[in-house]
Amino acid sequence: MDETKDVTLLEILDRVLTKGVVISGDIVISVADVDLIYLGLRVLLSSVETMEKMKRGQPVGASLEENDL
């Protein structure tokens, strides 16, 4: 994974894991339990501070790699 994708993934995870519409209760089947997320993430997300290595100021986002502001 190149650096831009790494940052993009980090930005996406920062949002999709804990934010957005969070429904609790019986309707939603909880797949995103701690172990599953942890297993997937530990491989991918080294640290927020890896951003120090990234190109300064480059906008990122799933749709922004080619189509920024």
Binding site: V7, T8, E11, R15, V16, K19, G20, V21, V22, I23, S24, M51, E52, M54, R56, G57, Q58, P59, V60, G61, L64, L69
Partner: peptide, 22 residues
């Protein structure tokens, strides 16, 4: 300082659910 700027994103951070237990 080092900056990481991103967007536009869907408004993940601004959803308010009145009866959610977050």
């Amino acid at each position: 300082l080092e900056f990481q700027f991103s967007g536009p994103w869907p408004p993940y951070n601004f959803i308010i659910m009145g009866n959610k237990k977050t």
